[in-house]
C-alpha cells in the first residue's frame, strides 16, 4: 500500500571536525512510503546537487543491514523509531505525512564528525586491534571434531559476533560508552576454546584501549541493548566485567 509523504527535515550540517555545525531545514515532497530512509536522503541530495548545493554527507554501504555504516540519529534515537534495524532498513512508512524529522550524527567525543552525518569510528578498529591475535596451530587443518564446543556456547559466541560495529550503542548511551561493542568483541572469542588462550590479556588490552579512546563508563541503563540493530545482550557486558576482574587479579 503505497502512499506519499511531505516532510520537513532538520539535518545537521557540519563542514569538518574543526568547525561548529548547525541544523539546516529542508522540505521534501512526494516521498514514497516504500522508500528506505537512505533513499529519501538520496532524493533530497539529488535535488541539492541539481540546485548546485552541497549534498548531505552520510555513511552507507550495503543497504541491507549488515555493514553498520548508516549512522543516523533520527528523532532522538539511533537508526530511528524501530527496534532491531539499521537506518537502511528503516522505511518511510514509519513516519507520518507532514512530520518534522530531526537527523543528527552519532555524538561522542570518541566519534568526531568528519562531515555532516559522517563520523569517524576508527576508535572501534583500534579497540579490535588491541585485542591482538588468537593462537591457532599451523599445519594441516585439524579434524573439526577435535575441538568439542557446547552448542549453547557456540550460539552465544555467534550472537555476540553478530555485532556489526555500527556504534548505535555508543550513540544511544547517555554516557557515550562503548561497553556493549567491546564486550561483544571480547565475548565472541572468550566463549570459544580458540579464544580462551589469550582471553585475560585480551580483556585487559581492549578495555584499556576503550578507555583511552575516550568512551564513557557504563551505568547499566540498557539503552544500548534496546537500540542495537543486532540485539546484542548486555549479558556480554557482565561477561566482560568478569573477564576483566579476573584478569586484573591474576595478571602479572
Amino acid at each position: 500500500m503505497e502512499g506519499h509523504l511531505n516532510l520537513t527535515l532538520k539535518i545537521w550540517r557540519q563542514k569538518n571536525a574543526n568547525v561548529a555545525g548547525k541544523f539546516e531545514t529542508y522540505q521534501v515532497s512526494g516521498i514514497s512510503t516504500d522508500m528506505s530512509f537512505l533513499e529519501m536522503i538520496d532524493v533530497l541530495n539529488n535535488r541539492l546537487i541539481e540546485e548546485g548545493d552541497d549534498p548531505v554527507a552520510f555513511d552507507h554501504d550495503c543497504r541491507e543491514g549488515i555493514c553498520g555504516m548508516c549512522s543516523m540519529y533520527i528523532n532522538g534515537r539511533p537508526h530511528g523509531p524501530n527496534r532491531g534495524v539499521t537506518t537502511c532498513q528503516l522505511h518511510m512508512r514509519s513516519f507520518q505525512d507532514g512530520e518534522t524529522i530531526t537527523v543528527e550524527p552519532w555524538r561522542a567525543s570518541a566519534f568526531p564528525v568528519i562531515k555532516d552525518l559522517v563520523v569517524n569510528r576508527s576508535a572501534f578498529d583500534r579497540i579490535i586491534a588491541a585485542g591482538g591475535f588468537v593462537s591457532v596451530n599451523t599445519g594441516n587443518a585439524q579434524d573439526a571434531n577435535n575441538l568439542p564446543i557446547p552448542k549453547e556456547d557456540a550460539d552465544e559466541a555467534f550472537a555476540a559476533a553478530a555485532c556489526i560495529g555500527c556504534g548505535a550503542c555508543v550513540a544511544a548511551c547517555k554516557n557515550a560508552s562503548a561497553m556493549l561493542f567491546t564486550s561483544a568483541k571480547i565475548s565472541q572469542l572468550a566463549l570459544l576454546p580458540q579464544g580462551k588462550v589469550e582471553a585475560a590479556n585480551r580483556a585487559q588490552a581492549m578495555v584499556a584501549q576503550m578507555d583511552e579512546e575516550g568512551f564513557g563508563a557504563c551505568s547499566n541503563t540498557g539503552a544500548c541493548e534496546a537500540e542495537c540493530p543486532k540485539g546484542i545482550s548486555i549479558e556480554n557486558i557482565a561477561r566482560m566485567n568478569r573477564e576483566y576482574f579476573s584478569a586484573t587479579f591474576s595478571s602479572k
Binding site: 528523532n75 532522538g76 555524538r107 567525543s109 551505568s219 541503563t221 540498557g222 539503552a223
Partner: peptide, 29 residues
C-alpha cells in the same frame, strides 16, 4: 562518574527520546 561521563559527549543531541530505550530512573541516578 557523572563528571567524566558528561565530558564524553561535548555536543549534546538536539532531540533525545530516552524513554524509548531506557527507564527514566536509570538515567537519573
Amino acid at each position: 562518574l557523572w563528571f567524566e561521563n558528561k565530558s564524553k559527549r561535548p555536543v549534546a543531541y538536539a532531540v533525545v527520546d530516552g524513554a524509548a530505550n531506557s527507564k527514566w530512573y536509570s538515567r537519573s541516578m
